[in-house]
Design a protein around this nucleic acid. Structure first.
Lengths: 149, 149
DNA sequence: TTTATTAGATGATATATATCATGTTAAATA
DNA sequence: TATTTAACATGATATATATCATCTAATAAA
């Protein structure tokens, strides 16, 4: 569903939000480690998020990435998905037709519309703060593989 | 969501089912034209569907592809999706974690589960015959682009 | 001012998917 | 039997995404 970049991007934002709530500014290296993503690719993704005003960055010895607390409450999943993958996920035809519409629908148009509406609902109503809660109390995780074994 | 191969595959099956109901056996060339897909790639996809017993084929001058009428009523979208893309769509984590589960859930696990259940519902309950109905009465389409302009 | 650290930028490489090309095999027909 | 048509098989190429590599710019601290 989401591109790999988008998956890493969402997980990174959740981690950064959680660290920001504890007044910390994690580095690319740290974020990549916690998320389980390749560092150079994570850097690229984070830069895109900065460009799109989802997260903020500071260069230098005490630099890193952070999100203001107000933003943690207002940034929703849709913001992140649109920044990385664009708006296609809300518009694209389930069977890959270039111009599927209500006027010229594909055979699964109406059923797929229900799926898309459910997805839209989730992306439009889930903010970063909600996503940090589970992380904070150890009920949710950003990576499960343990390469340290 | 679905791979390009899977999108073409579903559309091809709907077209073949529709033609089979009219006792016709369309060729690769015809199917690719009606679906708007590249012929060699469509051939490859169709062969995979034959291997997985979704459709049947006949070689030779009056050959082509077809689906028995009983099968048109019993083949569901899930069969086609599993044949081409595998079962991942039902299992994979929304945020790309390799081993997301109820025990170690990702931050969107429960919300995404609702989306996945909706998708599963659609794929498990939609058979090919239903999908031919709209096509037959001109209410649904398999391609919308017209390259003949 | 220099050094160290960090993000930023950009091009290169790897990998997976999509698409193309060519030859082989099977089947019907004359 | 030869010819034609169609599916089948397999390798090659193109494209998009994922990942890597290297250098530059910004910033804090000594």
């Amino acid at each position: 569903m989401f591109s790999k970049a988008c998956e890493y991007g969402i997980r990174s934002c959740i981690y950064i939000a959680n660290q920001s709530l504890n007044s910390k500014r994690p580095s690319i290296k740290e974020i990549a480690k916690e998320v389980g993503s390749p560092e150079p690719f994570t850097a690229k993704i984070l830069q895109k998020l900065v460009k799109n005003n989802i997260i903020e960055s500071i260069k230098g010895p005490s630099g890193g990435f952070f999100i203001n607390v107000e933003n943690i409450h207002s940034i929703i999943l849709r913001d992140i998905v649109f920044a990385i993958d664009g708006p296609g996920i809300y518009k694209n035809c389930g069977l890959g037709m270039k111009e599927c519409s209500e006027v010229k629908p594909c055979p699964i148009h109406n059923q797929f519309k229900i799926i898309k509406n459910g997805l839209k609902e989730m992306l439009d109503t889930t903010n970063l703060h909600q996503l940090t809660l589970g992380l904070e109390n150890g009920m949710t995780f950003l990576k499960t593989e343990n390469c340290d074994l």
